[in-house]
Structures are given as C-alpha cells and as structure tokens.
C-alpha cells in the first residue's frame, strides 16, 4: 500500500477504493492530470478556432476520469492502444503536453514528427501503441501486444480503449474471442459516451449494455460510472490483477459523455441541449473528483488553485514550445515510410 501513514489508512477505511489505495499526493497528481487533459483540449480547440492548426480533432472533454482511472493501476511499461479521441489516454499514460501540442502544430518535435496530427498522437516510449483513425483498429493490435506479452513472458498488461461505436465492428468481436481463447493479459475498455458520432447506442447496438457482449466471449463484463474516478480505477485494478495472474481478459464498459461535438463539424442535431447541460453541470468528472478530494480532506481551495495555476503554465509553455519548434523539411517527405537500414 502506498499510503503516507497507517493513521491515514485507518481514517479512510470506509472511503471509496482509490482513497484507500493511493496516497493524497498520488491523488493530487491525478487531479493535476485530469486538469491537464481538460486544458490541453481546450487549448487545442482554441488554437484550431484561431486558425493556428488545421485538420480536425475529437475532444474527450468530459471523459477524463475514464482515461485516468483505467491508467491508474498500469505500470509504465504496460501498454495501451488508443482511439481518435485519444488525447486523454495519451496524457494519462504519461505523455508531455508540449510534444502533443507540437504534433498538433505539425512540428518535428511532435510525438509523430508532424506526420500524425491529432488523430495519431501517442508517446510510444510510455507504452502507447498509437491513437487510431480507424474505429476499432486498435483492438486486435492490443490483442497482438497481449500475445507478445505472453510469448515473451514480459508480464505486461495491455489496455485497448475504444468507443461504443467500435463494438459493432467485426474487429471487436474477432479480437475479444482470440484474447479469451488464449487467455491473454488484455483489458478491453469501452468508453461508452452514448453516441458513435450521431448514432446513439440505442439505434446502433442490439444489447443495452456493451458489457453484456463479454458473455459471448466468456470473460467478465464490468460496468462502471466512467465519470467517477474511483469506480473506474477500481475496475481497472481488478482487471489488471486478473490479467497479471494469467486468468485472461476483461471487458470494462465505462459509461461517460463527451461534452463537445463529435469533431469540429458537428452541429449536435442528434442530442438535446438539456442532455448536454445535465452532463456538464451535474456529472462533470473533474468537479466530482475535486468534490470528493475536498470532502475527504485531501485538498483545499489553495491546493486546487495551485494545481490549476501549474496546469495553466504547462499549457502556455507547451503552446509556445509548439509554435517555436521547426517544421519538417519537404525533402524529408519519404522519412518513416520504411525502416531505415544501414
């Protein structure tokens, strides 16, 4: 146990999972990172609106607790595959925002050297095997990474993040089946934000809860409130333990919501203002976590302000770093198509 003191542990005995499992310092770090995700995406959005960057982007604002909760029990060399809505996963798995901004700006200092942009940002060194422009594209890759872990006996656990829309792709079903028959150390994390672009799960998906699909592949299917950090982290903790013990995969359905439109071109005609308002004002994951931290005496106003200030500085520095970084040379257009060989 990582708790600062035995006394602290006793007084928290009846609190939710993360408050028993992690120290106040660790939990402050979590809040810091949740803010970092939120402000990173707000910063990216603003840069886009001001015409500083092109392309499109998919913001995960409102889903921060899900990314953080899932990644909380992972070790640095555990791996993830991410999605088009992947900035949160990227930061939760340890990426630096300055190199993420640099990627947004298409610079050589970006994680993908300016080749990938928003949809592909990933810090491979931190175990992120890639965000993905193809819905469900990362799911079989995670199973492959799980197979490597088993064959190479590395003990690594692999998390595959995907959305509710992805569970209707064949790749999802094929991948879950293989992970189950080979008992691979993979955790399938469906971040169910209610919609695949404009199509609600009610209209796209034959089961009410995506976790029910786990039964078809003989693995546990767990539903958590994806906006409550502790719930997500607890489910992830258990799935990681199961994977490390060689017992096989788990499917976690993390129910959450995206505050923003699907991408930059969304007019939100498929959902109501009231619905969006409700999630923003009553179920915001950062507000909820901050409230708990306060209630349990782990942080005060000053502490929260300090985190917000530090994050604001990190974001400003990150954007500056991105702006002043060099662009790739056109003559290097062939770089990275194939592996450079001596």
């Amino acid at each position: 146990m990582d708790l600062a003191s035995k006394a602290g542990a006793d007084s928290r005995a009846n609190l939710p999972f993360v408050y028993r499992q992690y120290s106040a310092e660790q939990l402050k770090q979590v809040l810091h990172k949740m803010y970092l995700i939120r402000r990173f995406e707000e910063g990216a959005e603003e840069c886009y609106t001001r015409g500083l960057i092109h392309g499109t982007m998919h913001l995960s604002i409102g889903q921060e607790a899900s990314a953080m909760g899932i990644c909380m029990p992972l070790a640095e060399d555990d791996q993830i595959t991410s999605t088009h809505r992947g900035h949160g996963h990227c930061i939760a798995k340890g990426a630096e925002v300055k190199r993420m901004f640099a990627e947004f700006f298409g610079k050589t200092t970006g994680y993908c050297k300016g080749r990938g942009g928003s949809m592909h940002i990933a810090d491979v060194a931190k175990g992120n095997l890639g965000a993905n422009g193809i819905v469900a594209g990362g799911i079989p890759i995670a199973v492959g990474a799980g197979l490597s872990s088993k064959m190479m006996k590395t003990g690594k656990v692999v998390v595959s993040f995907f959305g509710d829309g992805a569970n209707n792709e064949g790749a999802f079903h094929e991948a879950l089946n293989m992970a189950a028959i080979w008992k691979l150390p993979v955790i399938f994390v469906c971040e169910n934000n209610g919609y695949g672009m404009s199509t609600s799960t009610a209209r796209s998906t034959a089961v009410k809860n995506i976790a029910e699909r786990a039964a078809a592949y003989s693995m546990p299917g767990v539903i958590v409130n994806g906006n409550i950090f502790s719930e997500v982290a607890e489910a992830s903790h258990q799935a990681v333990a199961r994977a490390r013990a060689g017992e096989g995969p788990t499917l976690i359905e993390s129910k959450t919501y995206r505050h923003r439109g699907h991408s930059k071109s969304d007019r939100n005609r498929y959902r109501t203002k009231e619905e969006i308002e409700d999630w923003m004002s009553n179920r915001d994951p950062i507000t909820l976590f901050e409230g708990e931290m306060r209630e349990f005496g782990l942080i005060d106003d000053k502490g929260i302000q300090a985190i917000r200030d530090a994050v604001a500085q990190e974001i400003a520095d990150g954007i500056e770093f991105a702006k002043t970084s060099p662009s790739p040379d056109i003559e290097n257009i062939q770089d990275f198509v194939y592996t450079e060989q001596a």
Binding site: K107, G114, G116, G117, H120, P328, I333, Q334
Partner: peptide, 16 residues
C-alpha cells in the same frame, strides 16, 4: 502522389 502515406503537416501534405 508521392510514395508515402499522406502526412498531417500541411506543407508536407501539399507536397505529397
């Protein structure tokens, strides 16, 4: 088109 996937950076993208 150049013998490469399409890059994100706008200048590279045009050059492709």
């Amino acid at each position: 088109g150049a013998e490469t996937p399409i890059p994100y950076n706008p200048e590279l993208e045009k050059a492709t």
